[in-house]
Nucleic acid binder design. Structure first.
Lengths: 170, 170
DNA sequence: TCTCATCGCTTCGAATTCGAAGCACCTAGG
DNA sequence: CCTAGGTGCTTCGAATTCGAAGCGATGAGA
């Protein structure tokens, strides 16, 4: 951990990219969240979950898959899926091949909500994020961020660290 | 609001950029938050607040300025500044020229914590965000995101909407 | 087969977040 | 000077988040 802190300070350019990234995503997410709330009564997380399920070929995913896709804690996921289930937008069922697992599936109502919310979502996305830059910039942005994302995914075991080694890192 | 929903669906490229943005910032923030917590017992928000104050020429800012810079709600800001004050990292004092305003100032202890946390912060930043791409890509990323950010800042009045007209939007 | 460490998910309590309402102050109009 | 409306921040209650602990199921080794 404290192997070689000997690193040069980031340039202004690097810091600028970092700050801009944080602020843009923060602002964008905030605005989208409002839109989702107004139109479909969804939080951003709930939308992400529904969208992830909607993307799945069968509309079904395991809890763990959802957790990984959304970066949130397992307990938070349980909570949100619970809300979605109570709202009738998803259904939970025990996984067939593993009695401990839980499969989550979008319901038709869930797909309806998704469809209802999407246009507004896109509109905000366009207005805030896509409109101000040309398509070349978008392509570049996407390419760079994708590289970073793939790199990040490789580095840390996100949602499933070793449960608890009997020796801490110290 | 529903003036012309007639918009073409986003291309795969555009969606990719959007998703990558959300995931990268989410992952990055999450990891940085862990680092900050371990080293300085700071949450990301607290770090942002301290850093913002540290950047200010006099180490002092108004509450509202802080809220704008960090995008959070006013009440949340009050809460966090309260925590920082209790920890002795910042000091609150009534603004000189406006009795209702509150000036927040970093203390020496606050600057110490900031200094203690910074190297780790940078290390994570490098490892996750800067290392995987070359400096051209970083420059491009920063430029594009800055354009978007400036655009976003112009659009919505962030933390201080009209208090409440006597007629809602409905 | 039996045993035990591990895995997938949920429950629990604590911390953080937000919006609405409230309080004190400022500022313009009479 | 007095009043009315707007501004800056805080308080309050509800909702969401997380990590740690708990529970049943799984699977590898004896």
């Amino acid at each position: 951990m404290s192997s070689q802190d000997e690193q040069r300070p980031p340039t202004e350019l690097e810091l600028g990219a970092y700050f801009a990234l944080i602020e843009v995503s923060s602002l964008l997410r905030h605005t989208i969240e409002q839109q989702l709330q107004e139109v479909g009564g969804l939080s951003y997380v709930q939308f992400q979950l529904l969208a992830t399920l909607g993307d799945a070929p069968t509309g079904t995913r395991r809890m763990t898959e959802l957790a990984d896709g959304v970066v949130y804690s397992r307990s938070g996921l349980t909570y949100q899926v619970g809300l979605l289930e109570k709202a009738g937008l998803v259904a939970r069922s025990p996984a067939v091949d593993d009695e401990r697992g839980v499969d989550v599936t979008v319901t038709d109502a869930g797909r309806d909500v998704l469809a209802a919310v999407f246009p507004g979502h896109i509109a905000v996305l366009r207005e805030l994020f896509l409109d101000p830059i040309d398509s070349d910039a978008i392509a570049g942005l996407g390419a760079t961020l994708t590289v970073i994302r793939d790199h990040m995914r490789r580095i840390p075991p996100r949602s499933a660290r070793p449960r608890n080694g009997r020796h801490q890192t110290s």
